[in-house]
Design a protein around this nucleic acid. Structure first.
Length: 719
DNA sequence: CTAGGGTTAG
């Protein structure tokens, strides 16, 4: 094909005419010849147009052809070289661009900037900083474009000192506050470092503050715990007549949520509507979170419904919102819906749904999510990891909790606390202490949660001395502030160990003792038959929480166990007057994801007959091994034989018999749940049962887990 | 041919 070109042809027009594909164009030798003989300006124009074409089609291949051609024809000069790199960046090949960049004999400042900002948008902070340093080294002065992008790299890598140096250079070059882009980038950098004073200092010096700068400041305050100041900055901005945009709304709504400030939240909601930013996804997501944090979960759900295509963050926000508001089951339903919609969860999502599983003690659901965590490679991640440890801990599966813990790449304070707490819940006090004592070596400083967990571990395994020692050390060091929870734990520990006077003295140390403390003492009195102190404790409980039914039950049971039947009758009539109904004791088992609930003497289960058979057999067998019914735990005024019979049909025993019946000969661990504390007679009975059946039984009661195995329990008969 | 701020977690 011969191409006839007019003498002074218009290159641009020609290209438009004949460019179906660049490679075809390049093959037109006449054009090559022409390009070689045109003036510098014309050639530059010619190649610029070709490059523009490549940028437009995002074709790296064509760009390569153009580049080769430019080298061959000897026209790879300054301006076009820069354009080539720019096009390369736009085609998405930052590495190829860098190669060209390094080969270029002369580089314009603009192309340094383009390279640096490209590195930053690809999250390659190290490379960005490397290039910035090189730029300064080569004597190419950074300008406002350089500074407005490079500070982000310093904050991303946490390079405070280096960031400050760059800030210094921007001051020397007079760009720090004269350009609002540079100013806001600096404010953002200091805010990300958590150095709000520095951020504020820069902000104050910038003359023409705009919405971006204010937003950076607001986010900084909000994310570093000063939501009040964030709100103040927002007010200030509005008063200056600067209009908030979707970014600002997204941040300030979170601030209102953190403050649980519904009235300001609603005010901002109004501004969002007025400004027409309603369609912005992030603002809507923040709106959802704001309502959820203010406890208005139905409003949050309504906002979610408005999303046509919720993204991962929106879904996660909804799930978090539901978990926060005690709607765990709905959270799990929404999570399944999200997965069906092919949205891939991240560790934010997974740790929230795991939290939902923990709250509901849904071990099977949790295990499935654990599989997902592994599938997405997040099992080494500290957030997902801590959530898994909590889950297994709460479900009484200490071994799994430990294996997750051991697989973590990094152990931080929260995962450590979770593991210690897991041990604590099941009464593995020595293991908890071992972790606690090894913390220093890992460079971890215990906090109040650590101390509470380790004290609970001591409490739940009867390590009285160790608990007292840790408590005393912390109290003397003043390094960690002890809360009422710590004291409550110690009161329980001392009280149950029979050191009732010490426990009562400890309560007197607390400034505003709350009802939990006195309740702990009361239950210790019940345990040790201390009627007098119990009455004192009950009065304190009732002062702080009038109508506290549980404490009445405790004292009633104490009277009953000490044989004061007339007082029992008195208490019961008082309770009737209070219209208080005792929480009936119940146990349940999860069989194939179905929950079977049992109450004492409950014959309502469809397989009641078989359950009773299993139970009778078990009772016979454990009696051979030495089980003796302990009728002290029958809190009714009955004769001995009737007391014995009533013990046999306690809900724990029914639940275990049922679980045994359903699992046949499988050698799996039996798991049962009880809403109150395990009864003393049942506790001893279960220990015998594990001997008979040779299987492990794990029972969760109102306070903790009991791991029964080979005739022993992890609580060491101390609960 | 180059630039700044946002939403989800224990």
């Amino acid at each position: 094909m011969a191409v006839v070109l007019p003498k002074h042809f218009n290159l641009l027009a020609t290209i438009e005419l004949i460019v179906p594909s660049l490679s075809q164009l390049i093959q037109l030798k006449s054009l090559t010849y022409l390009a070689r003989n045109t003036s510098l300006t014309e050639a530059s124009q010619f190649y610029s147009s070709l490059i523009q074409q490549c940028t437009h089609t995002r074709s790296l291949r064509d760009l390569g052809i153009v580049q080769t051609h430019m080298i061959k024809s000897g026209y790879i000069h300054l301006n076009v070289g820069n354009k080539l790199i720019d096009s390369c960046l736009k085609c998405g090949s930052i590495n190829y661009a860098r190669k060209l960049f390094d080969e270029l004999p002369e580089r314009h400042r603009v192309i340094w900037n383009a390279m640096i900002s490209s590195y930053i948008s690809h999250k390659k902070s190290k490379e960005a900083i490397g290039l910035y340093v090189k730029m300064v080294f080569y004597g190419v002065f950074p300008d406002e474009y350089t500074f407005s992008s490079v500070f982000k790299a310093f904050s991303a890598l946490g390079l405070v000192y280096e960031g400050r140096r760059a800030h210094g250079l921007s001051v020397v070059l007079g760009l720090e506050v004269s350009n609002v882009f540079v100013g806001s980038a600096l404010v953002d950098m200091y805010a990300k470092f958590g150095r709000m004073k520095d951020a504020r200092l820069v902000s104050n010096r910038v003359g023409d503050k705009d919405v971006v700068l204010f937003t950076a400041l607001i986010v900084g305050y909000s994310q570093h715990g000063d939501d009040g100041e964030a709100l103040e900055v927002f007010r200030n901005m509005i008063n200056q007549g600067i209009k908030a945009n979707e970014y600002t709304f997204a941040s300030i709504l979170i601030t209102c949520g953190n403050l649980e400030d519904l009235s300001n939240g609603k005010l901002v909601h109004g501004l969002v509507i007025k400004s027409g930013s309603e369609a912005a996804v992030a603002s809507q997501t923040s709106l959802l979170t704001m309502y959820a944090r203010c406890g208005l979960i139905d409003d949050a759900l309504r906002i979610f419904k408005r999303f046509q295509h919720p993204n991962l963050v929106t879904w996660t926000s909804l799930i978090v919102a539901l978990v926060r508001n005690g709607r765990e089951e709905l959270a799990l339903t929404k999570f399944r819906k999200m997965i069906r919609d092919s949205i891939v969860p991240n560790s934010f999502t997974l740790s929230s749904v795991l939290q939902a599983c923990s709250s509901l003690a849904l071990i099977d659901e949790g295990k499935q999510i654990h599989a997902m965590v592994t599938k997405f490679g997040l099992d080494k991640h500290i957030y997902a990891g801590a959530a898994l440890i909590n889950l297994y801990g709460k479900c009484g599966n200490t071994e799994m909790a430990r294996s997750v813990f051991d697989a973590l790449i990094e152990i931080d304070l929260v995962s450590m606390n979770s593991m210690i707490y897991s041990y604590a819940q099941s009464g593995f006090g020595n293991e908890a202490l071992q972790l606690f004592n090894g913390m220093k070596e890992l460079g971890l400083q215990p906090n109040d949660v650590t101390i509470l967990s380790v004290l609970l571990a001591c409490n739940n395994s009867g390590l009285v001395q160790e608990g007292c020692q840790i408590f005393a050390t912390i109290r003397n060091s003043h390094y960690i502030e002890l809360t009422r929870d710590h004291y409550a734990c110690m009161v329980d520990l001392l009280g149950r160990a029979g050191r009732l006077e010490d426990a009562e003295m400890l309560i007197k140390e607390v400034k505003n003792p709350d009802v939990v403390l006195w309740r702990a003492l009361l239950s210790a009195c019940k345990l040790h038959g201390q009627v007098e102190m119990a009455e004192r404790a009950l009065n304190k409980v009732l002062e702080l929480a009038p109508g506290d039914g549980g404490s009445h039950v405790l004292l009633t049971n104490l009277y009953a166990s000490t044989g004061n039947w007339s007082q029992v009758i008195d208490m019961k009539s008082t309770m009737r007057e209070m219209k208080f109904k005792k929480n009936p004791a119940m146990s349940w088992v999860d069989v194939d994801r179905e929950v079977h609930t049992f109450m004492a003497g409950d014959l309502s289960h469809p397989r009641s007959r078989e359950i009773n058979e299993t139970l009778e057999n078990l009772i016979e067998e454990v009696q051979i091994l030495g089980y003796v019914p302990d009728t002290r735990f029958v809190l009714q005024d009955l004769d001995e034989e009737k007391k014995k019979r009533s013990l046999y049909y306690h809900s724990e025993k029914l639940a275990i018999s049922f679980a045994l019946l359903m699992s046949g000969n499988k050698n799996t661990t039996i798991r049962i749940f009880k809403n109150l504390k395990v009864c003393g007679d049942c506790h001893s009975w279960i220990k015998f049962v594990t001997k008979v059946i040779g299987r492990e039984i794990i029972a969760r009661d109102a306070k903790r887990y009991h791991h029964f195995k080979d005739g022993c329990c992890s609580c060491g008969d101390y609960w």
